[in-house]
Design a binder for these strands. Sequence first.
DNA 1: TCTGGGGTCCTAGGACCC
DNA 2: TCTGGGGTCCTAGGACCC
Length: 423
Amino acid sequence: MSSTFALVDCNNFYVSCERVFNPGLMGKPVVVLSNNDGCVIARSNEAKALGIPMGAPVFKMQDVIKAHGVHVYSSNYALYGDMSQRVMEALSEFTPDVEIYSIDEAFLDLSGFKRGDLADYGRSIWSTVRTWTGVPVSVGIAETKTLAKIANRIAKKSEKAQGVLDLTKSLYRDRALAITQVEDIWGVGRSYATFLRSVGINNALELRNAPDSLIKKKMGIPGLRLLQELRGVSCYPLEQCPPPKNEITVSRSFKHPLGDRADVNEAVAAYTSRGAEKLRAAHREANILVVFLMTNPYHRESRYFNMKTIRLPFSTSDTSELIRYAHSGLDEIYREGYRYKKAGVIFRDLSSDSHIQTTLFDYGQKETSKEIMRAFDSINQRFGSNSVRYAATGSTRNQKWKTVRQRCSPSYTTNWDQLPKVS
DNA sequence: TCTGGGGTCCTAGGACCC
DNA sequence: TCTGGGGTCCTAGGACCC
């Protein structure tokens, strides 16, 4: 039996979240910025129409923003994360087989459903999510995830589709593929798109009909899978419980470059501490710690990048231990005389925290460390993150490396003090 | 002056071992 | 003259996704 997937994707998600709590933004150009208010990472349709590209540095867009009164927001992840949960809960009403693919997208397995009813079902999903959460979505339905992506994209853009497109009827499929340019296909990025165009493949239909050997040569196994998916043969099944993480990264750019070792030390300690929290939340421990450091890559002169990989003697998620290793790695890569723009830590080769892998002598110590970490996490959970912190992360008043968010909306749904007020 | 963050998968090449 | 073959582990880098 062939499979059927629906892809439900929130329209301009971050902007839509802002609009739910500030309806005055409806119909107006709105953008949401990345950390440090650096780049544009979400745009309303009106902002797209003004030619503001995805990822554009905001300082380059100042003229357009001023001229058209574009509303600008810092990203408010507490709000978006919470809204995302509400959307996903609404989706789970329609089938238990939901894969949360990203903060604003989910795949639904609709394989058991009758073909003729799919579009109606899609419309029902569309209106339910909108009514329950206020967030507009698009729904694409097809035999594979890749085709569902294509259907979704057309559903979002076409007036006629009204937010829902069912491609399981082969009548429409070839036409849909023909109007989908190669760079808009899931799995085709800039470099593959350039290659495909260079061999005369310009849209998804031409790609589907291309010879396997040609694609395999340049795009490898993933390329072959892509061909199969376009032909309606599903290669990517629904993944409901995501496999355990293999890697955890915490890194940030600094608003202003740092030339002082003490500041970089603090930042690295803070990122390590956050990473250790993520490890414990995922019930994982790290065997490898990587610390890295870089100057501003957009500035040609005096560029520096370096990283140090450290294999830990045994796996751990203990904050103070990890900070010690991160600092010792930093010792080896830190060079005086540079102004650093970004640093980070990566935990690799993660193992489960359920088995204790250490020497007999360390056993008692390990138990103590685990208890301290449990207490640390539960205090922060109860009283808000950073209620207790490690001294190495510096005094909050002087953290020069701290990310800046100057135009942030309130945490309407996750903070009692910031609930929306109706007057 | 001002340019995000966090992931995954795949491939190639070197070191090392038997 | 003729200089093996294969496996594993690691790292780096490239490609993609949101």
